[in-house]
Design a protein around this nucleic acid. Sequence first.
DNA 1: GCTTGCAGGCTAACGGTGTTAGCCGAGTCT
DNA 2: AGACTCGGCTAACACCGTTAGCCTGCAAGC
Lengths: 174, 174
Amino acid sequence: MASSVARTREIAGAARAVLEEEGAAALSMRRVAERLGMRAPSLYKHVAGKEEIEAELISDGFEESAAAFEEACAGAHDHLATLAAAYRAFALAHPHLYRLMTERPLPRALLRPGVEERAARPVIDAAGGDVDLARAAWAFAHGMVMLELNGRFPPGADLDAAWAAGVAALQERR
Amino acid sequence: MASSVARTREIAGAARAVLEEEGAAALSMRRVAERLGMRAPSLYKHVAGKEEIEAELISDGFEESAAAFEEACAGAHDHLATLAAAYRAFALAHPHLYRLMTERPLPRALLRPGVEERAARPVIDAAGGDVDLARAAWAFAHGMVMLELNGRFPPGADLDAAWAAGVAALQERR
DNA sequence: GCTTGCAGGCTAACGGTGTTAGCCGAGTCT
DNA sequence: AGACTCGGCTAACACCGTTAGCCTGCAAGC
């Protein structure tokens, strides 16, 4: 057999394309199936349901963001500021994926194991091992990104300045 | 006539009950109508669509949270810490409403005028008028709340400590 | 008091969603 | 050759937001 996981990856690939090109509202079983030249019910021969496809995308997102964070921090002086910039860049580059990864409780049972921890690692390191500070920094970055993605800041708001203010505050606690 | 806005408020009341008691997934036109002893299409005689009902709930949420923030800060010494606690308390008391208020771009055209600004005021005041710091603090609080609501912190995580770390960091910048 | 008009219910329906049941053809193994 | 399984398919269900069109009861105008 052509390895059932390979089919799952093909489906995830199609789903990723739909998500990035057409947005979260378009991420439907019928739309994903259409990309693969089939009908929606056929997807269920390879995948348990929509949630499994989403979990696959979320796992991919964790791996990609972890790789981006690791690369950004490699040899950087100012870990916290560098990581903050990388975090924001990832979210703005893949807004639909970032939303999928964060806006609902994680389907942890369906995620590829270890993927969540790997993405969290650079944040804890950048906080010098202080987990409370790491969580505060993560929350700050996540909050900034979501408020920006949702257009919640006023039109003329200087977001770079707000990021700088937050990062500076957190840095002083190290 | 019995003032069309009164009807709208009745509908908003039913929607609020559905949202708080049964969750966001249950907030459907049919479900709201059922609470009022009617069928879904009849709602359209009083309201333009689901988005208008949601906007009503969001306006209510802004007013309620603003009132809570104002009361909490009245006569408090440590404005930032007090406001952070009030922010978290509001979100945890009304998780579905808080999600509705924040997880998508605001339908500003449908909101009651001024409600957004009123809710933002106490945050800016607590930051001593520094809008960049205020935005950073808002992002931190929003991020903490959403990560908590989504169960993203590890089971044993000391969230009070993380809140304290973030608030302490932001306070030093005042 | 009769008539007109309309506010505010209703049912039926459309196109969309995730999902299930059941059918069937092609390829593979015995 | 026969059986079995893989992986497509159509039809359908229950739900979603929304629209069209019908009908009833009440209120205002003459």
